[in-house]
Design a protein around this nucleic acid. Structure first.
Lengths: 164, 164
DNA sequence: TATTGTTATACTCTATAACTATA
DNA sequence: TATAGTTATAGAGTATAACAATA
């Protein structure tokens, strides 16, 4: 029940703050889907900010991690693992190779495929991003609370795996 | 410590299923940020599917709801409410007006601004989307469980509001 | 015939900066 | 000078379809 002003928009409530008409979000405010999206956007933006400090794009993080943990992975396997079409991965891998973070080798037994691996520079970048991610995780942990964390993640995993 | 096959990729494990090399997600698997993103993508894709059945775009839903619940809202207010730049909203509003879902009126007291409101068709579409959203929410509820739901949403709201 | 990866192309969503018309 | 909304433009991320090389 927020009220604060007179008949006009409540301007100048506090010094220097822009006037903001209180917005009614209706049922959105209590829906999981909407709040999931808001939380994800905020979390992503925060991690984006941390990544930018390293000169990296947050979208590259999962790709680097998947290549690091799955030596000799092919582009098709990588695209399946990240749930994107292989054609979407072409420019991403190309960018990582161009910047010397990922190495691509033709496979002799099947000359259509590549094997992807991190270079030393790629491992370095991944380490930096991992450190940023851990810091971000600690921030999230504070908001979630240790008591609820495991259950919170379990629910997220259920949603990712089972929502139809 | 998952192992399952011989020397080659385990192909043909079950009839007709594509061979999938088990992927190691490393620390991603246990991080909130990553699981938040996966859950949000899955939830959004599911709602997208429901919206498509109505011939609508899920991205329009929040916009319609905000206009419905905040009569005479201006485009600048709407852009602030949805956390996007006003220039991003121009094509969205234009599309809604063109399709007869939203009505735009010039304001006499300040002829720079518009007042946005839903038309009857807009209200109809919003009602259809709301019904789809409720169904989607019921699916999410099943995965979350009544016991944890309030706490789950509270955490999402905290992340959206406070993550830095 | 089927698969791997690339190319051509297109669509959505977003932003910044410069603009117009009003204030 | 400042604000509301538009336009021009660009970039990221995604997809489908057609293709060349290889299997």
């Amino acid at each position: 029940m927020r009220k604060s002003g007179g008949k006009k928009l409540d301007r100048g409530v506090r010094d220097g703050e822009a006037a903001v008409k209180p917005i009614d979000f209706g049922p959105l405010a209590t829906w999981v889907g909407f709040n999931l999206r808001m939380a994800q956007e905020a979390s992503f933006a925060a991690f984006s900010h941390h990544s930018a400090a390293i000169g990296e794009n947050p979208g590259r993080f999962a790709t680097l991690m998947l290549i690091a943990r799955n030596a000799d992975i092919s582009q098709t396997e990588l695209s399946a693992a990240s749930g994107r079409d292989k054609s979407s991965l072409t420019p991403v891998v190309e960018d990582l190779v161009r910047r010397g973070l990922v190495e691509r080798k033709r496979v002799d037994s099947d000359r259509r495929t590549y094997r992807l691996n991190l270079t030393a520079a790629g491992r370095k970048t991944l380490a930096l991003m991992t450190r940023a991610a851990r810091k971000h995780e600690r921030n999230l942990d504070r908001l979630i609370g240790t008591r609820d964390k495991q259950r919170f993640i379990a629910i997220l995993k259920r949603i990712a795996a089972e929502i139809e």
